[in-house]
Design a protein around this nucleic acid. Structure first.
Lengths: 296, 296
DNA sequence: ACATAATGATACGCTTTTCCTATCTTAGCC
DNA sequence: GGCTAAGATAGGAAAAGCGTATCATTATGT
């Protein structure tokens, strides 16, 4: 599909000489004459006024020439665009990610990717793990970055690790435990606790609770916060303490301190997740790029 | 140039099934697979996700489909347009015509032609014979309607008769000659005369003067008018009499009378004139149409 | 688990299209 | 009147496209 004939016509129209045009096209003159005749037959319109002396365009040819040029140009553009989408330098991508993934290196990575891929439209949306999985399966998003753990049933999906975060204990500045450099897990027993809603990340929630129980810690959940933002506000207000992903510390806040935990807690594994057979070059490129931004 | 492959792609994209698509295209399935593969190779982009279970578009294919459709549609439009221009139902045409050609049947003919050929843009310009010939040769106009006579050198042009007009004598209402039903040529001797500029229609001018001399009439040219409009104003004002084309009488005017001439005067032959080998279907159609409007 | 059915890919020979070489035709020119 | 330049025509060769037969893969049903 080289639009051969269209090119033949344009070249003859430019040279106004079958011999020279044929030379430019690297073919002999007779087939060129034939092909032009074929176009004329197909269109039902004579495009050239021929004499042995000179060749000129008929009004029909005059009208055809710019249109033919435009068509070819259009075709070039289409080709480029399709190629761009194919190798991932253009296209659309909807990404759902959990709040904890929104680290400075994540933002930087996204910004760079946009910078280097002007043809790409990224659609970013913050979601809970539960919501993101649903959005993936209903094809509302193409890619998710969520808390993954082995208990989840994701046989219809594929995934790849993004980063592992540790838990930190969020404390009010003036809390007695803030004196210690790191807090033993057992110290959390019966402490007033602020948790996220289980439904947001059910497996993670269950895993954390399991770990606490195993360490003999019975948390006294005094409040359930839907947004991490709210959790921090409540902790700062002295309502209680909370276990938060380490990425939370990137947002500094008056009156809040973070301490590492001494003891066994599940890791916070953020994974890229996508539907089977839906991994496009664009997604691959984005995943590779974002992963490269993760420190260490 | 049937844009075969493009159509193949579109059909497969619509059916999402190589077998059915091949059937719709009236070819076997293997060549279809081959051609699709050829497109993919050419674009450097996989367009379909194939499995023995189902075929689906890749993002690149998704982008390509509407573009391919648009391209084909565009091609159809181009074809139609070229065909229209070729058979004269569309296009542009610049027509220069002498004032005398602007009769009611001329106006009606033009109006009808426009009505019946909406794709046609007519560019009408009133000109003198001299100016029209120049405009023709410099390709500023495509067709002229001018006073033609055998003395003119128009070997580079072709022509066809439009209509023959007679001369009339334009008189003030109260002029003594207005009493007669027709005026003998000899009566014009020494009468105050209003003439057009010789340069406007030189051959015609010379021919008229020759006829007058031959009849022993020595006109007393008191004024030279550039516009026929002006001639009539001057005649009505009693400045003199004038020889005018019979078409002039279609414009009635207070205080003006026209009388036939008894005697030998050149006929006013208005011809279509165009450059050799420049007669397009559109011009042919216009010429035929206008000529059919001439009375009798 | 194994045979069956459905579907796209591959192999290979045939047909059609396109191209090339050689020659013809026409129109200007010395 | 022959010469030259340019496009058209003729006929065979090369290339592209197509068809039949077959393979490979995957789901399905017993």
């Amino acid at each position: 599909m080289r639009f051969r004939k269209l090119n033949y016509f344009i070249t003859v129209a430019e040279e106004l000489h079958f011999g020279r045009a044929a030379a430019r096209l690297h073919i002999a003159q007779p087939p060129l004459s034939q092909q032009i005749k074929a176009i004329e037959d197909e269109l039902g319109a004579v495009l050239f006024e021929r004499s042995s002396q000179k060749v000129s365009l008929t009004p029909a040819g005059e009208v055809f020439l710019p249109q033919a040029r435009a068509l070819l140009q259009n075709w070039e553009k289409i080709q480029e665009q399709v190629r761009s989408v194919a190798n991932g330098t253009a296209g659309n991508l909807s990404l759902g990610f959990v709040w904890a993934a929104g680290t400075p290196h994540f933002s930087k990575g996204i910004a760079q990717f946009k910078q280097n891929n002007h043809g790409v439209t990224l659609n970013l949306e913050e979601m809970t793990t539960t919501h993101a999985l649903d959005a993936l399966r209903t094809e509302k998003i193409d890619l998710a970055m969520i808390f993954l753990n082995p208990l989840m049933d994701i046989t219809d999906l594929e995934h790849q690790e993004y980063e592992i975060q540790k838990h930190l204990l969020a404390l009010p500045d003036n809390h007695p435990l803030a004196q210690k450099d790191s807090v033993p897990l057992s110290d959390l027993h019966q402490l007033p606790f602020i948790s996220f809603v289980r439904q947001a990340h059910p497996s993670l929630y269950d895993q954390i609770m399991h770990s606490l129980h195993a360490a003999g810690v019975e948390p006294n959940i005094v409040q359930i916060a839907r947004l991490t933002q709210t959790t921090r506000t409540l902790v700062a207000a002295g309502v209680g303490v909370a276990l938060v992903p380490e990425s939370t510390q990137f947002d500094q806040r008056e009156g809040l301190t973070y301490r590492p935990i001494d003891g066994v807690l599940p890791e916070l594994a953020i994974h890229f997740v996508w539907r089977k057979n839906s991994l496009t070059p664009l997604m691959e490129r984005l995943i590779t790029h974002l992963q490269a931004q993760v420190p260490r």
